[in-house]
Amino acid sequence: MQTPPAIIDIRNLAVTFRGGSRKVRAVNGVDLTVDRGEVLALLGESGSGKSVTLRSLLRLHPKGTLIEGEIKVAGQDVMRLGRRALADLRGGTVSMIFQEPRLALDPVYRVGDQIVETIRRHMPVSRSEARARALRLFEDVRIPSPESRLGNYPHEMSGGMLQRSMIAMALACDPAILLADEPTTALDATVQIQILLLLRELQTRRGLAVVFVTHDIGVAAQVADKVAVMYAGRIVESGHIADVIHNPRHPYTQGLLDARVELAQGSSRLRTIEGAPPDLSALPPGCAFAPRCGRVAETCRTVVPELHSGSTSVACFEPLRG
């Protein structure tokens, strides 16, 4: 029996930004696969390369960015796609939602018209068909009185409503893959959980593969099947979300989990990871976490550890017993 190929397959991805004279290695050798219908959370702090990795799937980087490695999305080689094919991929097979829907939606057009436009760009349907489809999408994302809401301009909607509209627009052309870049970070707590549950429901119903970028372990735990923890442009640990959260094997993952304030109730201090993430334009030769790591050994400072698979995959010479 043969397992179906992964819908996203990234091999040895490296992304380098050239800002002036300095070269910033934002992503530094990432391997990643996502199966059909699977939700992967990319978890990391700012500068870990999680968003950059996500954007690489659609080649959404500013000009002059160097992307190396292999990226296969839904059977297509993203690195070799021409302009047209790339445009078809974006919003067709793969669509994306962002942290700030206000920036992603055009302020001068009605939200409904923007969705209709998106549908018509990718599908040979009439205006009225597209309109009907937009209405169904608004119902799917649970926007109250969807008919009249389609006629709203973005500024007439609240943050939660806008994020729902953006999800509707992202799903307009029945994508197989949804990329989500911190879509609930800017929302209020009571709205955040609504959007997370909505995303999970839509994902299950439509069998979407989702890559969900977040810095919040709680959010990842609510939506993801698998998680990949990133640090300084590399994946340091990946596996099923429950395994990683309950039995972290990489010292950084453990540090992140230990630093959670909800664990510290009753005690007077938080456990922290001392120090700060490395400068991406001057990465240390070995493991990027070595300077902050409590389990550091000689090899860690000179050799970059590879991601070894086990119950969870971990890139560490001295992993914790899972």
């Binding site: 939660g160 919040d216 709680g218 609510q222």
Partner: peptide
């Protein structure tokens, strides 16, 4: 109740509160 718990076994099924502020 809206704070996401960092435990995949404690997933919510219904949002504790509907609507926007």
């Amino acid at each position: 109740a809206s704070m996401p718990k960092a435990n995949p076994a404690e997933r919510m099924d219904e949002p504790p509160l509907a609507g926007d502020p």
